[in-house]
């Protein structure tokens, strides 16, 4: 849980807590990746490179359920909900605005949890390929996962032929989010 709470916390403490939120979330993405069929067949170097490139994007997908577009609130992992206005006052504005916009678009597609999980796997293996040693293996893995996602979605919604293309269009959105926001600064207190 992320201990963002109460009016008695200083801005600095809230920012430290916000920064700390990402640590367990990143570790969960690593564990998630290990469970993707075929991911651990890649070389360790390539696994690391994909995770470094793609984790931010996977987190954007994962966190989108924490954003309430109608209420303009964000729920942190400890269950505390904050209005965007409060968080913006702490300087988190541009990243959160982008996450809200992305969350609205993705949520409107109405994905089931298994579809969302498979989509996150596709996001991870579609990450930037700089530094990848075996491109062919990564491409094979990506193609297999995209085929599986297409199959899952079309079996469940045979009459909706637009959902899968709309979902794939979220991939460049995620790359843009990554390019614009992954250089945002976090602050961790040194005790």
């Amino acid at each position: 849980a992320c201990p963002v709470s109460g009016v008695d916390r200083t801005s600095q403490e809230i920012w430290e807590s916000f920064s700390q939120c990402f640590t367990p979330a990143v570790k969960e993405v690593v564990e998630f990746a290990k469970g993707i069929p075929g991911f651990q067949d890649l070389s360790q170097q390539d696994q690391v490179m994909l995770l470094k490139s793609g984790t931010f994007q996977v987190l954007m997908v994962r966190f989108c359920t924490l954003f309430n577009a109608e209420e303009r609130t964000v729920t942190f992992l400890n269950g505390q909900t904050y209005p965007l206005s409060t968080l913006r006052a702490l300087g988190m504005g541009s990243l959160l605005d982008a996450m809200f916009d992305f969350s609205e678009k993705l949520s409107s597609l109405g994905l089931e949890p298994d579809e969302m999980a498979l989509f996150m796997a596709v996001v991870l293996v579609s990450a930037d390929r700089s530094g990848i040693s075996n491109m062919w293996a990564v491409e094979q893995l990506q193609e297999g996962l995209i085929r599986a996602l297409r199959s899952l979605i079309s079996r469940r919604r045979p009459d909706d032929t637009t959902l899968f293309p709309k979902l794939l269009l979220r991939l460049p959105d995620l790359r843009t989010l990554n390019n614009l926001h992954s250089d945002k600064l976090l602050a961790f207190r040194i005790d």
Binding site: F22, V26, K27, V48, S182, K184, A187, F188
Partner: peptide, 25 residues
């Protein structure tokens, strides 16, 4: 006064991943 280690979100993600793989080797 508190001392902070400041890093980008990208660097933080990278650090966690490197640590995890090193730990599991």
């Amino acid at each position: 006064p508190k001392t902070h280690r400041v890093m980008t979100l990208a660097d933080h993600i990278s650090h966690i991943i490197t640590q995890d793989f090193a730990r599991n080797q």
